[in-house]
Design a binder for these strands. Structure first.
Length: 525
DNA sequence: TCATATT
């Protein structure tokens, strides 16, 4: 049966049809014929001897009834993700590079949905699966395009299910059972593309296997029918049939094992007490500098108070509530951000209850987190927590400094961006990763692990208008890489931020804040 | 430790 979705079919037969939101070249050419590819073996992924069953041919391969459409792709074609593309290269520029590995079915440079900005990457589908494999082998990490600092990336797109949504883990098998036995067992529930018994170095079965069906539904039906359905001779419990772990799950599991080994509790990373006053101190220095520079010490509220900028952010719709003018405390600005502050109590014994969602991300989302405005740690110490500080904790503490600062200037009226209300929908402003002008862009290293874009922005808002903040994340683990960028709209703000925040201690680490290294090859415009 | 981006 033909496997084209409606969308794909349309694209195939009407390549000129306008594409929404992104440009896309569909290459058509003379002389192409619908493919009659030989069956390809599924590449082995396991280091142990195995039998891999070829993907069955199920009769009705798509047949072109449009001789002019010369860019039909194989059913088993692979969509490739292409990364590290200079932003001045468009489809037509990239085409020659990739064409040498085979006929291109589709090549699409990714553009920002709203601004049309080139995202520096693309999707590429060859007509033939083999071309994709050749291109990946020849190019991935092998060549660096002009102006790039890192080599080109050529690999299957994330959307190319590597089978993980239709791949089953089978446990509690009898160790005598072979691939063929397992295949027979699962055959009734669908088309099996791959069947592998896991074996140790000695070739002995580990009593488990992977079975990949052609669809998620088939895999699901096999689970329903077989999981727990029987106990194999010699097995200690009934048959286990479940979806195989995804890569991400594997990564997380691996890390959990590591944490298990090294211990997750590490009170030492709780913030040292100096943090409060140092941020306050940093801010006061900054304010003092502004005061000295402006009006001979006469305070101009629009420049003198960090709250001004924070208020502006509220207007930018970081949370969906309209700014509500009222007298209040600055740390209320935290409410409604992606990581609400931890629940600070006003009880005589301050305590923080921070549920750890999991051992890693550890950023609790506390609905209705409502920091009490009057909270004062009269002993000058932060509440003690034996758990890792969350981003909100850390920011909360930082902003305690702001509170201290504002207390010194009681005439100021601060305007919180939101009241404490039931959590608004957490719409995060999609900010463009925009570089500011020369001298306005900061590189920040040694960020707390739990900081995200928002926390980074909050941290630097007191120094000016932040037009972009970005913490780099490891895509596999969703973990911060502990560095990021902040861009201001003017160099003075950037300098002020460097002055105040470079060396700023958070936990055991000190921030490194410096101007972003200028890019040698300047961007077009 | 300097923009890694997935329609």
């Amino acid at each position: 049966m033909a496997r084209f979705t409606q969308t794909e079919t349309r694209r195939q037969y009407h390549p000129q049809q306008p594409q929404p939101a992104h440009s896309s070249l569909v290459f058509t050419g003379p002389g192409a014929s619908p493919t009659q590819q030989p069956l390809l073996l599924i590449p082995h992924q396991h280091q142990y001897p195995q039998i891999t069953f070829p993907k069955p041919m199920n009769g009705s391969e798509p047949i072109s009834i449009h001789p002019e459409s010369g860019n039909m792709k194989d059913q088993d074609a692979i969509k490739l993700f292409i990364g590290q593309i200079p932003r001045n290269l468009e489809e037509k520029d990239l085409k020659p590079l990739f064409e040498q590995f085979g006929k291109i079915h589709e090549l699409t440079v990714l553009k920002d949905r709203y601004t049309g900005m080139h995202k520096g990457c693309a999707f590429l589908t060859y007509c033939a699966r083999e071309s994709a494999i050749k291109a990946q082998n020849a190019l991935h990490e092998q060549k660096t395009l002009p102006g790039m600092t890192r080599p080109i990336q050529v690999k299957p797109a994330d959307s190319e299910s590597r089978g993980e949504d239709r791949k089953l883990f089978v446990g509690m098998l009898n160790k005598q059972q072979t691939e063929e036995d397992v295949y027979r067992l699962f055959e009734p529930y669908g088309v099996i593309e791959e069947c592998t018994v896991l074996r140790g170095p000695d070739g002995n079965s580990k009593g488990c296997a992977f079975v990949k069906f052609s669809t998620h539904t088939e895999a699901q039906s096999a689970i329903s029918a077989l999981h727990g359905s029987q106990t194999m001779p010699g097995a200690s419990s009934s048959l286990v049939v479940k979806f195989a772990d995804t890569d991400k799950e594997r990564t997380i599991r691996r890390m959990q094992q590591m944490v298990g080994q090294f211990g997750i509790f590490n009170p030492a990373i709780a913030l040292p007490f100096s943090t409060y006053s140092s941020y306050a101190h940093a801010l006061m220095q900054q304010q003092a500098a502004i005061m000295a520079a402006s009006h001979g010490g006469y305070l101009t509220p629009s420049v003198a108070f960090p709250a001004t900028q924070i208020h502006q952010m509220g207007a930018l719709n970081i949370n969906s509530l309209p700014p509500t003018p009222m007298s209040g405390e600055i740390h209320q600005t935290l409410v409604g951000l992606s990581s609400p502050p931890a629940n600070i109590t006003t009880s005589a014994v301050p305590s923080i209850v921070t549920p750890i969602v999991n051992g890693f991300t550890g950023i609790p989302h506390q609905p209705n987190g409502h920091p009490a405005v009057e909270t004062v740690y009269t002993n000058g110490l932060p509440p003690y927590s034996t758990q890792s500080p969350t981003a909100a904790d850390t920011l909360q503490q930082a902003f305690t400094g702001v509170q201290q600062y504002t207390a010194i200037y009681p005439t100021t009226t601060l305007t919180p961006i939101g009241q404490t209300l039931p959590q608004p929908p957490q719409v995060i402003q999609q900010q463009q990763q925009r570089e500011g002008p020369e001298g306005c862009n900061l590189f920040i290293y040694h960020l707390p692990q739990e900081f995200g874009d928002n926390e980074l922005m909050q941290m630097f808002l007191p120094f000016g208008t932040v037009i972009s903040s970005k913490v780099f994340m490891d895509r596999a683990t969703n973990q911060s890489k502990c560095f990021g960028f902040v861009s201001f709209d003017n160099p003075a703000s950037a300098q002020a931020a460097i002055q105040a925040m470079n060396g700023f201690q958070i936990g055991m680490k000190r921030l490194k804040v410096q101007l972003k290294r200028p890019k040698d090859a300047s961007r077009p415009y």
